[in-house]
Design a binder for these strands. Structure first.
Lengths: 245, 245
DNA sequence: AAGTGGTCTAGACCACTCG
DNA sequence: GAGTGGTCTAGACCACTTG
């Protein structure tokens, strides 16, 4: 079993959760098998049942396990285990799919927001934003083009410090204390225009996925507005939808 | 304030949750405004703090509100409020978008599963499935074509009883006690083939969204396998992604 | 200092499933 | 009847934010 560290800043329920997650990832607990019951965890780990429950509940919310009243709690049989959508950086997403991500910066400049960008980011037209256009590659194969805009006032010295090798989200969090909590996304189908087709190494008018995303930090403050074009032949959206009560 | 019904089978936290949801939907609580704190709900409604907390937590999970330690809990500023993805029937989804859904049945028959269908539904090739192909319309405009397969053994008398006006999910739940809990979905971009273009009233080789979905009931038992084609010009995927811890 | 959410405890009753 | 998860209580201590 697991020795809990009661002095740690990591909450007990989270330690239990990570322990179970590790058991599942390593194959010690297989899909369909029951995970330890709330009572069992409570007794064996010396925590209250509510704490055990909280650990299981958080895994339920991720779709990793599921509960049945009167029967028990079981490991989900998920071929897609790792790809439940969350707020992920491109590199994290590709890592989850088992590919190595890289990027090529096509454009990095400070510019003035037009009406649509200002609206999305809650700015006034003409306010300064960082314009970042990148080609995204997985295992050196072009996957998509992302065009980000970030309000300049959030990170006024980023233009001097920007390192294209580091994840943008990582820089925002570590350097400016800005953490993306929520991303609203609209995805639709479209056709590649000629410049996009050239960059993505596909035929003109090939099917592509178009994304429009707005990311928000803690106080619902818009942090980033992104338009993306992804290859229809290599990029798919994988989602797990869960019934809410 | 709200009078809780302690005799009801509806849990207290759920009554509180629905009360707050109504406040938000009606505009009584506006985006950015604080919702009542856990302590306030606890005191005013006469429930324990844990119960008040559970109500708020469930709304947090839906992305309707968000919490900040030390500050309070606030209403999310969501233009997309109602469209967070869940397991929704086509009718529910269209209602959430403010449209009236209808369907036209193109095919309804019992047939034998081919290899790919059998694989998706956990059957053996040749097992009988219900084949249901429907044109989906929103406000009488064609939106997409859905091709469902359901294992016949789950609902062996459905072929006699099927009423195309009722939601399939509703029939499964009410008649057979089968409740869809999880749907795994893959979406990609494609081009309309000629038959699809004709049914959808769009030009051949127009961009379309292709979906492949498998829905599961309680015991991870596959219930439905669906392939869909949706118009790229009228149908978009709207998603809210939430950072997990 | 007062108020907030995050975590945790040690109980309790219930409805459900299964042998 | 024994075990399960679902709900609920009445406390507690903590870290954090704000006036």
């Amino acid at each position: 079993m697991l020795a809990l560290d009661r002095q740690s800043v990591v909450p007990l329920y989270y330690q239990i959760r990570q322990f179970l997650l590790e058991q599942i990832r390593s194959g010690g607990l297989k899909p369909g098998e029951p995970v330890p019951s709330e009572q069992t965890i409570s007794a064996q780990m010396g925590v209250s049942r509510m704490t055990a429950r909280q650990a299981l509940k958080s895994l339920c919310d991720l779709g990793i396990i599921y509960s049945q009243r009167g029967k028990g709690t079981f490991v989900s049989g998920s071929k897609l285990e790792k790809s439940f959508r969350q707020v992920l950086s491109f590199s994290e997403e590709m890592a989850a799919r088992g590919s190595r991500a890289s990027s090529k910066v096509l454009l990095f400049e400070v510019a003035r927001a037009d009406a649509s960008v200002a609206d999305a980011l809650g700015l006034s037209p003409g306010d300064e934003v960082i314009n970042l256009r990148r080609l995204r590659l997985a295992d050196a194969i072009p996957m998509g083009i992302e065009w980000s805009r970030i309000p300049l006032h959030l990170c006024s010295d980023l233009p001097d410090k920007f390192d294209p090798k580091t994840s943008l989200y990582q820089i925002l969090e570590q350097r400016y204390g800005i953490r993306v909590l929520v991303t609203d996304e609209v995805a639709e189908a479209g056709l590649a225009r000629s410049e996009e087709a050239r960059l993505l190494h596909i035929a003109k008018r090939s099917p592509v996925l178009l994304f429009s995303r707005i990311s928000y930090a803690e106080n619902e403050k818009p942090v980033e507005y992104v338009n993306s074009v992804y290859r229809g032949d290599r990029y798919k959206i994988v989602n797990r939808l869960i019934t809410k009560r």
